[in-house]
Structure formats: structure tokens, C-alpha cells
Amino acid sequence: MTVVDTGTARIAYDREGAGPPVILVGGAGQLRAADPATRTLTTLLAARGFDVVHHDRPGRGDSGGEPPFTLAGEVAAIRTLVDVVGGRAALYGSSSGGAIALAAAAEIPGVTRLVLWEVPLGEELGTDGAAFLAEIRAVVATGDREAMLRTFMADMPPEWFDGMRRGPQWPLFERMAPTVEADAEALAWTQSAPHAQLWGAITAPTVVLVGSSAFPFFHDAADAIVAALPDARRAEVPGADHGWEPEAMAEVLATHLGG
């Protein structure tokens, strides 16, 4: 583990391999200590010739930071990590981390490639993202960490939250609960203006991934991202229920990041 300071938060990360740099941006429930699939993905990509950075987002795991957790803070962390690897890097954004990766790519000139996994976008210019962000902020203000995660996951299969709540790593998730405000803000940001306007500065070649048995709205979101970017296409990864196997994901990422 290595630690770097963004100026507002201490960011902890693992780094493996040598080659083109890739920064992995986790989604709402991901942190290094509770995300074995992405830890394995880091090692597999490193073995395929990439310099891979897997970090704890602000306020998660070994990283520091205090509420409120914001999209700007997430982008600042990614910017710092891009600087650490030499000023140029590809980004892989998972789920709501894909919305954060889009925001980072729109602001950071050194983003060379972009791969996004099942970003849960709402309708372009819709208002549901802003309403959800307001709801999350209201719950965060109460300090009830279980309610923060329960509210964020309200539209997901109930067994996902139940498994998290009953699992041995619940204290880790409970600690990171306020950070889901940044995920909600990132998703609201994607509806704050026309996609072409929000993402007009993104020139990095982009691949939008969906699972072979993805929920239908992920297909709609993928099509919307591809339509709005100048150099983007879709691809498929074996997977279902918003999940994937590390070997399959590593193979697909290596193909698209090295192409």
C-alpha cells in the first residue's frame, strides 16, 4: 500500500505491474479491503503488461477524508493518481464509479482511454438524479450510516443490502457510508446538462461494457454514452446481476486498453 495526499484527503492505493497506466475507479460499495474481485483484477492486468492503480476512494478503507464527500473530491483524487503515474493514464470506472470516471475524463487532459462498466445513468436531462442526491444528503445529515446505505441501495435487489448488513465486513461498509453522497452527486451530474455538453471535452477512446445478462437499463445507459462521445463503442463481458469474473474482465480490459 502507498499513500498520496491530494491536499484535502490522503489516498491509499495498491500499484502493480509495468506498462501503460490504468487507474481503477470503484463504485458505490467498493473498497480495497472488501473487493477481492478488483484486487484480483489488479494482479491479472499487471500480469498482462499494465501499470495498475487500485485505490480507496476518499473516506473509504485506508484513505482519509471527512464529510461531505463530493464529486470534486473524487476527481481531485484521480487527478493526483494520474500525476503519480506520470501524467497520463487510462481509467476503468465501475458502476457509479463510471460516472466519476466520466467527470474525471472531462476535466483531466491526461486521460488516454476510458472503459466503463454498467454505469447506472438516468434519462438524459432527467430529474431523478437530483432528487436522489437530495434524499441521500438528507439521510447523511442525520448521521444514520445504516440508513445511508439502505437508502442508496433501495432500488437494488434487497438481498444485496441484507448480505452486506449481515456480513463480517459490515463495519467497513458502515464507515464508508457517507461517501455514497459522491456517487449520488456523480449520477446527478450526468443529468445536469445535455450529455454532449457535459462530455464534450472527452476525446479518449471509450468502451462501454455491459454484462451478457445485464439489467435492461444498463443497455440503455450504454447506448446513451456511446451516442454522446466522439470515439466510443459497446462491448460485452460474461456476467450477470451487475457482476463479472476477474479473468473475463481482465481479458476484455487488456484487449481494449491495449488496442
Score class of each variant (00 low, 15 high):
residue 174 E to F: 02
residue 192 S to P: 11
residue 110 G to P: 11
residue 24 L to N: 02
residue 73 G to V: 11
residue 178 P to W: 11
residue 219 H to Q: 01
residue 83 D to L: 02
residue 113 R to W: 00
residue 203 T to E: 15
residue 26 G to S: 06
residue 102 L to T: 02
residue 162 D to P: 00
residue 192 S to K: 14
residue 111 V to F: 02
residue 155 D to G: 13
residue 183 D to E: 06
residue 221 A to L: 13
residue 251 E to Y: 10
residue 132 F to L: 13
residue 98 G to Q: 13
residue 155 D to C: 00
residue 66 E to K: 10
residue 245 E to N: 13
residue 257 L to M: 15
residue 246 P to R: 01
residue 46 A to T: 05
residue 40 T to H: 08
residue 200 G to F: 02
residue 143 G to F: 10
residue 210 V to M: 06
residue 77 A to V: 03
residue 117 W to M: 11
residue 232 A to I: 08
residue 28 A to F: 02
residue 197 Q to A: 11
residue 170 W to N: 06
residue 123 E to A: 15
residue 181 E to W: 01
residue 202 I to W: 09
residue 130 A to E: 14
residue 87 G to D: 03
residue 176 M to F: 03
residue 204 A to M: 05
residue 33 A to L: 12
residue 34 A to G: 06
residue 234 R to D: 11
residue 231 D to Q: 12
residue 158 P to E: 01
residue 80 T to L: 06
residue 160 W to E: 15
residue 53 V to R: 03
residue 149 L to V: 14
residue 78 I to W: 10
residue 201 A to D: 15
residue 55 H to R: 05
residue 86 G to Q: 03
residue 200 G to D: 11
residue 92 Y to E: 05
residue 84 V to P: 04
residue 94 S to P: 02
residue 178 P to M: 07
residue 256 H to L: 15
residue 189 W to F: 04
residue 103 A to Y: 13
residue 140 V to T: 04
residue 256 H to N: 14
residue 108 I to E: 06
residue 173 F to C: 01
residue 53 V to D: 02
residue 235 A to I: 08
residue 187 L to C: 08
residue 248 A to Y: 03
residue 229 L to W: 13
residue 171 P to G: 12
residue 150 R to L: 08
residue 256 H to F: 07
residue 49 G to R: 07
residue 215 F to Y: 04
residue 168 P to C: 05
residue 50 F to C: 03
residue 220 D to G: 12
residue 26 G to F: 04
residue 232 A to G: 03
residue 196 A to I: 03
residue 193 A to R: 15
residue 143 G to T: 12
residue 84 V to Y: 06
residue 36 P to Y: 11
residue 44 L to W: 00
residue 23 I to G: 01
residue 57 R to W: 07
residue 25 V to F: 04
residue 186 A to E: 09
residue 37 A to E: 03
residue 209 L to Q: 06
residue 83 D to W: 00
residue 177 A to E: 04
residue 254 A to H: 15
residue 228 A to E: 14
residue 168 P to T: 15
residue 15 R to E: 14
residue 201 A to C: 05
residue 153 M to S: 12
residue 36 P to S: 10
residue 189 W to D: 07
residue 82 V to A: 09
residue 197 Q to C: 00
residue 132 F to D: 08
residue 128 D to N: 07
residue 2 T to N: 10
residue 62 D to R: 14
residue 179 T to R: 09
residue 168 P to I: 09
residue 182 A to L: 02
residue 101 A to Q: 06
residue 237 V to F: 14
